[in-house]
């Protein structure tokens, strides 16, 4: 293949000079190897400059899992990495990759040093509406009184009172969970280097589908602080009606600030 129609699919940048070729394959079963500039290494595979689209959903998923597997493997073998977003192909060959590392050496070194000894975790905290409604109802005499009025009155009026009751409970839940969210987030921040609020609804396993998400954070956490964070989440999880999902570690995808270098 001539130099003109080559590309290099990029997985991650390592904070060491590692000359290696890996037995494990990458996206679309490609051979994964490294390109070095001084003490920085790009993990790549060689591909054509007119890469194809995935042949279907199954293949697309396979590629995504392969990408994350390579990023995870590099983290496992060599420590901190700066991960590339999925599907990044640089035009050109190994020399172009090495040149890109050279040009952005200082920026990449600075970025990678922020991640040294740290990993990204996702924290999702859910509440169970029914349990919290019951709790609020028990604690609030005003609501109990409103419910008491429902018996022995005409159906139309009872209906209006019921709506009023539901509305009040919803308001109370809202107030309760905003207070809880602020408290939880502050305590999670204390255990983390950096915390970002996620905007998208996460994909959750079936057991969480009926629950309502009210805290969704990406956290950059020092390796030594993970047990402390775990204990904090245990305490949060113990509260009736609250349930925590703690996943990771991931390479620090959410905390990469370098864009368009």
């Amino acid at each position: 293949m001539s130099k003109n129609n080559e590309g290099r699919y990029l997985y991650s940048v390592l904070n060491r000079g590692i000359d290696a070729e890996f037995a494990e394959t990458g996206v679309n079963s490609a051979r994964v190897y490294t390109v070095i500039y001084r003490d920085l290494t790009a993990v790549v595979h060689a591909c054509s400059d007119s890469p194809g689209l995935a042949a279907g959903e199954g293949e697309a998923m396979e590629w995504i899992l392969e990408h994350i597997r390579v990023v995870d493997l590099m983290t496992e073998k060599f420590g901190t990495v700066v991960p590339f977003t999925f599907g990044t192909i640089i035009k050109g060959d190994d020399e172009v990759v090495s040149e890109w590392l050279r040009e952005n050496y200082a920026a990449l070194k600075a970025e990678i040093s922020r991640f040294e000894g740290r990993a990204e975790y996702s924290i999702q905290i859910f509440y169970e509406q029914e349990l919290l409604s019951g709790e609020i109802f028990k604690m609030n005499p005003g609501l109990q009184e409103l419910k008491g009025k429902l018996t022995g009155i005409p159906r139309g009026i009872a209906y209006l009172f019921e709506r009023q009751l539901e509305h009040k409970i919803a308001e109370e839940i809202e107030a309760l969970i905003s207070g809880l969210a602020a408290g939880y987030e502050a305590r999670i921040r204390d255990c983390s280097d950096s915390v970002l609020s996620e905007e998208k609804k996460p994909g959750v396993p079936e057991e969480y589908e009926q629950k309502k998400l009210f805290v969704f954070l990406a956290c950059l956490v020092q390796d030594g602080k993970v047990p402390e964070l775990g204990e904090l989440l245990d305490r949060i999880n113990e509260r009736e009606g609250i349930c925590v999902r703690f996943i990771g570690p991931f390479a620090p995808f959410s905390f990469v600030r370098l864009k368009g270098i």
Partner: peptide, 20 residues
């Protein structure tokens, strides 16, 4: 979806003229 959100929208992005 946990993975997709990370891999597709986050991470290091190259400048447009370098990318295929």
């Amino acid at each position: 979806v946990d993975l997709l959100d990370r891999l597709l929208e986050k991470g290091l992005v190259l400048r447009a003229d370098l990318v295929i």
